[in-house]
Design a binder for these strands. Structure first.
Length: 116
RNA sequence: UGGGUCGGCAAGACGGUCGCGUCGCCUCACCUCCGGGUGCGGCGCCGAGGAACGUCCGGGCUCCACAGAGCAGGGCGGUGGGUAACACCCACCCGGGGCAACCCGCGAGACAGUGCAACAGAAAGCAGACCGCCACGGCGCACCUCUUCGGAGGUCGCCGGGGUAAGGGUGAAACGGUGGUGUAAGAGACCACCAGCGGUUCGGGUGACCGGCCGGCUCGGUAAACCUCGCCCGGAGCAAGGUCAGACAGAGAACGAUUCAGGCGGCUCGCCGAGUUCUCGGGUAGACCGCUGGAGCGCUGCGGCAACGUAGCGCCGAGAUAGAUGACCGUCCAUGCCGUGCAGCGCCGAGAGGCGCUGCACGGCAAGACAGAACCCGGCGUAGCAGCCGGCCCAUUCG
């Protein structure tokens, strides 16, 4: 779905993106976008799924669907280079239809960034 | 056919589009101390569970003296086996439940000692006696019978000192149970059977125990109360532990070296032994190893009632670290509900027909249990929708 270079893996990077990135909410997620922060050209994604969302199986599924959404975005060239994105899933996001989820996040990311 | 009981299997299938992680191979690029390393891309293999879960037991592994001894503490508790080990498993015994298959039991000891038992009941542990039963003695404006008229006998009531514990009632439990003999009334006082106890007794079994014989007739429960007995247990845990890289800033106090500084959870011994502990302040929490081939899995043979053991052959089946093992779509498969049609059965109706149940076909909708590895095994416990298969038992029908 998402290759290693497209993932945020350091706690510091999460912290900076959540604190300093621009924040916008959809019906099921909170999205933080911070441009010009990644060390390489590749945009990076990170995901936060709290225990309030569900048990381990549900959290895994939610995170995998968000990764699939991010992959769709990358394929259509949406997040600009060197941009960090953190998506925080809210309770209830396990029951959303796939098309709805994709549309919501695409709108938010598309409004924040310029198409490459 | 219906009901019950025990056990096993499986954990939706197939396809398409786009992807992820470990490992192996290849191409290209870069670096090189020429061993190799890093990165992009391609191909191939593999990629969650029966409970991966809870973390309740037991082990492996690692470190803590050389992992030792005693005490304390903890765990276990029918017997015999299995196992690396267990609180697990198998077989058997005993007790209880069930017509039965089968299920259930925190299954040692109450003649070592201490303690406990609400309510009820006369009485709860050592014998005793509330109601009652029984003779004996005394008393009576009581009653009946006989009378030689003096009284005698009996019934009833009261009192007295005795005998007795069968019956009543309470309780979870009342000093054996049932039936008889016996007696003034009764009682293991005696007898038969049963239950329990004891035996230098006989037989069976490795054993727990079982059966027989003999004996005198009897002695409560509770150890998920203290306790006693037997067996077992050193502690901490993969953030164990180790290598490399990197960062910072030290200061003060106490104790101590042929040793009771300190270390091995507590105490004593024993061992090791040169730095240890505390306070204030500051810093790092990166990479690699451990890390997955193992008490491993499958088949067949042999031993064993079984758990299991063993031999041969074959196989390799996850190693992530903001944490891979997937996302979306389609078809089929079971499942539930609704509708339509057909068939069978039952009921209602004079009839046309109507209603209900079951099965099949088609269409639509819903929806796919519980749940996600993190050092690894063996168990236990818990969660769990709908299924499939088999053994056994009971009832019924037919032969």
């Amino acid at each position: 779905m998402l290759a290693k270079p497209n993932r945020i893996v350091r706690a510091d990077d999460y912290r900076n993106t959540v604190r300093r990135g621009r924040k916008s909410a959809t019906a099921h997620c909170v999205v933080y976008v911070r441009p010009e922060s990644a060390p390489t050209d590749a945009p990076r994604f990170g995901f936060i799924v709290a225990k309030t969302v569900g048990n381990a199986v549900v959290r895994n599924t939610v995170r995998r669907r968000l990764k699939a959404v991010s992959h769709e975005l990358l394929a259509s060239g949406f997040p600009p280079e060197r941009t960090d994105v953190v998506i925080r899933a809210l309770p209830g996001s396990d029951a959303v239809r796939w098309s709805t989820l994709l549309q919501e996040i695409t709108e938010v990311i598309g409004a924040k960034g310029v198409k490459r």
